[in-house]
Every structure is written in C-alpha cells, then in structure tokens.
Design a protein around this nucleic acid. Structure first.
Lengths: 253, 253
DNA sequence: GATAGAATATAACGTAACGTGAGGATCAAG
DNA sequence: CTTGATCCTCACGTTACGTTATATTCTATC
C-alpha cells in the first residue's frame, strides 16, 4: 500500500505543508518520488509519522525528535525524564505567574479606585456621621445603642490600633477578592475561615450577636457607599461577603 | 535626566537590539532622536519599559502589550483574568503530558527489556528451579517448606489464575515505578497501599509471616535474577520495594 | 590634531514550524 | 478537451529578538 500526500494527511491529520516541511528537513522522507515528482509514502512512514506526532504532542522540538527516533529505548527514557523536569519547571513558573496576576489585579483595583476616589470605610468622620444617621433611621434605637458602644470603644484607640484594623480589613478583603476570582463558594471552608477573621475584626467595634452580624449585611446591601467601598476590591464582593456572612452567622453564632 | 541606549539597557536589563526593536514596532519610542541619530530616553520611558517587561513576564505577546498599555485599569483587569484562564489551561495540559510521559516510560521499559529478555518472574520453570536451589542452600529447611507449600497451592491453579497473578503483579510494579519517579518515599501512604496489595498477592503463594516477608526482600537483594526482573520496571525498584516491604512488615505484621 | 576604543547607527540574515498564497504541472472524469 | 482535484516548487509572513557586518560618531589620550 502506498499513500499520496493527501491520503497521508487524512490518515494523520497533519497538513500537506507539514509533510513537505518534514521532507525538507529530513525528518520524514517519502518512500519514493514518482517520475512526476509526486511523493509517495509507505506503511512504515505512517507509523513513523505517528511517532513523530506523539513526541511533538509532548512538546519536543523537531530537531530533538530527529535524535530521539534514532535512539534506543534506554536513551528515550532518559530524554523523557529530562523532559519531565522541564515540564515541571514550566508548570511551576506558570503557577507563580498566576499568583502574580492575582496580586496585580488587586493592585489595579486598589490603586485605581482607592486612591482617586479616596474612599475608606469607617475612617472618614463626615461619612461616618451619615451612616449613623442612616442606621438610626432604619433600625432605630437598637442601632443607636450599637453606635454608642462602638464610639465608647474606639475612643480609646490610638493610631496604631486604627491602622491595625484598617490593614487587617484591607488584607482580608483582598484575599476574599482572590477567592471570588477562584470561583469559591461563600460557604466554602476557605472563605468561611476569612469570614471568621472578619467577624473577629468587627467584634472590636461592637458586640456582635447573630442578628447584628446579619444586620450588617443589610446595611452593606442598602447603603450605596458600602457598595462603592466593596467594589474597590471586587465587583461581586458585596453580594459575596453578604452571603458568606449570613452563612457564617447561621452556622456559628 | 536623559538616558542613552546603553544606560537604559543597564537600568532595565534588556539588550540594545530589544530597544531598537521596540522602537521599530512602536512599542517604546525614545524621548527624542539627536541630530546624529542617537536615541535618548526620558524617565517616563524607563517606567514604561518596566511596565512592558512586567507584562512580558506574564507571557503576553508584544502586540497585546501595546493594547494593554493604552487600556484603563478596568480593561487591564479583564485582560489579566483572561490570561489567567489561558495559563490555567496550559498548566492543565502540561500536567496531562507529564502523565503521558510516565505511561510511556513504563511502556518503553516494559516492551524493551521484557520482550527481548523474556524474563518473567516465577513463570519459567527452569529458572524456578534455580531459585529453589538457591533458597534451600541459603535458608535451609524453612525455605524448603515454603516451597513445598507454594507448589501445593499453585498446582491447583489454572491459566486464568496464573494470568491474574501475573497481571496484577505487573500493574503493581508499574505503579510503584511511577511513584519512584515522583520521589515518593517507601514509607509514604501511597506506596504502602500498593505494598499491601503486594503482600496479599504474595500470600497466594505462601503463608507470609512477618519474617518470611522480610526474608523475601533478602532473596530479592541477593539473587541477580531478581535484580534483573525489577530493573525492568525501574533501576531503583529493587532497593525501593525492599525498603517498602520491610516498613510494611514492621508496621502491620 | 591624530588615533584608538567605546558607543551608536542601519541593514540583513537566522531562528521554529509551519500557514498562506502564487503560478504552474499533472491526473481522472465527463 | 475542459473542468476540478491534486500535486509541485518557490517564497514571503509569523515572533522577538540574537548575531554579525559595516559604517559613523563620540570621548579620551598622546
């Protein structure tokens, strides 16, 4: 049985150009050339081509494949093991790149909106007063008590303590944003671990009961400034953290 | 402050050719050209170059980088997220290749040595007799009893049962070889799970006590035919399986 | 001011593995 | 004999530069 170029392409899936190329570089010569110049391949050439394609699949360059095909099994094994190391390092490198991208996204989201909109949760006294009014209007007396409690506590804080809360909150929200990008669910253990930290952090402001913690999610959802704040970290952050907090409250409080 | 090409290469680590190239494709034009044609760069160009190099690090082609640099943060984030997906699929693909290589190595080791040296443990009656003589010489009466026991049992076996033992043993040794390549320790749970299967398999030949099982490792180590047999699977197999078996015996028997 | 050495320039080829035509034979079928 | 399929040989385009080759120009030293 002899195969024309076209037939071989159908059997192997490669293009005519590729066969020409392999002929040219001496990787796969046809069985013979007809008088008209046409290339004709034999059965063994088909098998050889499949070998070539296999090594190509594994990422070997054609020159390496040339050598590989003339090696015995022992040396092929050595080459394959070396290639494993190579692939391994590429995987490692790419994983690092993924991390770098995550950080960069956070950085972009952060610097973009944060600096030029200079919005920072809870540390702007004018805004603070707005929230308080909103809270009292919406939740009445209970909310007022929470605020009084919060003020009493934070009044004793120095700059370091404020910074600490701010930094921890910031790191926490950034980590949450990464998890959103990773398609983790609000109820997943990784997220819940962060929400636990969030709960502890918020506890430094008020005494958080289950109801109050769930109430916080409502405040977040209803007041546009909170949406803006959370959008800084991730467009889906506000819904995500709300769900995660409600789940946390139901399970643990 | 203005930088000549050389100065910029020192600051950024790229080659002069690269700067020429970036100039040519319009990715990074110098601040101005002097009358003699020399390129001079400004501070902002250095910063831009660093941006370019950063995206290049992440694996973006230069044309993409051109676009990226003219985008706002929002679109850059989208591009980065798309790139994450891309990197992820590459990682996945390469992991599959690693598996394929493992299988291929086993296949090569198998067909190469196994077929043309036609060595198969326990199924060649001439060799079998050699081992028996060796065992009796080395371990005396106890070994002889084991052999008698083994013969009694296997005498009742039909071809299917022999094939079953052979196939399971073969699969097991191949799996062990993969684990060696993965640098797993003989005492690791994955390996020990396989060794457990090995123990059960050997139990079909003799009643394996702790001492006998450990004794087997000595037989493996001392008789060159066993070394050859195990080498078929992996050059380090004999030491590896020996350690794993001794660990297994100490822990479980 | 001559000269050497460093820095600069442009231009062009090489790289890997083909894709994509251009332009021209050859073959089988109607 | 014409059409359409298949075949051939150039030869350029692709990516991101590395690597000469050849020619200027700047800077320092004698």
């Amino acid at each position: 049985m002899r195969y024309s170029v076209k037939q071989l392409t159908k059997l192997s899936g490669v293009s005519v150009r590729t066969l020409h190329w392999y002929d040219q570089i001496g990787l796969l010569k046809p069985d013979f050339y007809a008088v008209n110049g046409y290339r004709y391949y034999a059965e063994k050439d088909l098998l050889l081509l499949q070998q070539i394609l296999f090594f190509k699949e594994l990422g070997f360059p054609l020159k390496e494949i040339q050598k590989l095909l003339s090696m015995d099994g022992f040396d092929q094994i050595k080459a394959l093991q070396a290639h494993k190391v190579f692939l391994g390092s590429e995987i490692e490198r790419k994983n690092k790149l993924l991390e770098t991208i995550d950080k960069t996204i956070l950085h972009l989201r952060g610097t973009e909106k944060m600096t030029d909109k200079e919005l920072y949760y809870g540390f702007d006294s004018d805004r603070q007063k707005e929230y308080e009014q909103y809270l009292v209007k919406s939740y009445g007396h209970e909310a007022e008590q929470l605020l009084v409690e919060s003020k009493k506590r934070t009044a004793k804080w120095d700059k370091d303590e404020w910074d600490d809360v701010k930094n921890k909150g910031d790191a926490l929200h950034k980590d949450l944003a990464v998890m959103i990008d990773q398609d983790l669910k609000p109820s997943s253990p990784e997220v819940q671990k962060l929400i636990h930290a969030h709960y502890e952090l918020q506890n430094r402001f008020y005494d958080l009961t289950k109801e109050v913690y769930i109430g916080l999610t409502k405040l977040y959802a209803e007041h546009p400034d909170f949406r803006k704040f959370f959008d800084v970290y991730h467009p889906d952050m506000i819904e995500f953290i709300g769900e995660a907090m409600r789940f946390y409250a139901e399970q643990n409080l």
